[in-house]
Amino acid sequence: MLVFERIEDKTHPYFEEAFSLYENSFPIFERRAKYDQISALTDSEYHFIIIKKETGELLGILLTWHKDDFTYVEHFAITPLARGKSIGTRTLKYLKKVSDKTILLEIDPPVDKISIKRKVFYQRIGFIQSSKIYIHPSYREKTESHQLMIMSYPALTEGVYTSFQESLSNQIMQYSEVDY
């Protein structure tokens, strides 16, 4: 059985291990500096969730924003040793089950073997590719914004997309090195 536990501050016993997984799973421009991550933990709409076994072994992280009309999966990573064991599938199916709003996430454009595999993974779970051209701002100074592809469950509406863009600009990216 998977256990989902929210980290609300840097004193949580799993924070350092979970943050290490975060740092090792995403390139620098796609992740917050540690001090920005600690600041984001204070936001009631931000959920830094660890995924673990009942025995306590860390299996992954699911970092989400819970808004009125959508849940945004900002970062999602499974530990290298837990990959290929359906942890990611079970986590996203659980999220779909407990969420009564649109779930959206971003992936790299499917241009190589790994990015194509990732897109197929999300499609298998029911996520739908949006046709929106989307440039995600960088979390770090001296790094560039980057193109990503939005996927959602169910299909992304114009209203949810507009709400997401507003939340990204006015709240989510406030926890970054770059002044938005």
Rank of each mutant, 00 (worst) to 15 (best):
A33N: 10
S167K: 10
I61H: 08
H47P: 13
D43G: 07
Y161H: 07
P154W: 08
T79D: 09
G56Q: 00
H146V: 01
A82S: 07
T71A: 12
S169G: 09
S99D: 11
E30M: 05
A33F: 04
E74Q: 08
T162Y: 07
W65A: 00
Q129D: 14
T11A: 10
K10P: 12
E166L: 12
D36N: 13
R124K: 15
T157S: 04
E8T: 11
V98K: 14
W65S: 07
L21A: 11
L104G: 03
Q174V: 05
L21K: 05
D43R: 09
E106V: 09
V111H: 01
S99K: 04
P154N: 05
S138P: 08
S39R: 14
T91W: 12
I49T: 15
S138T: 02
Y139E: 09
L41P: 03
Q123I: 08
Q165A: 13
E17F: 04
W65D: 02
E30H: 07
V120R: 05
V178S: 04
E177D: 08
D108T: 05
A40C: 09
Y22H: 03
S99C: 01
G159C: 06
K34Y: 06
K97N: 15
T42C: 00
K34F: 06
S163E: 02
V160M: 00
M149K: 09
A77F: 08
T143A: 11
A82D: 05
P80H: 09
I28P: 08
E57W: 14
I78E: 00
T102K: 04
L41T: 06
S167E: 15
T55M: 15
V73K: 00
L104D: 01
L92V: 03
V178G: 05
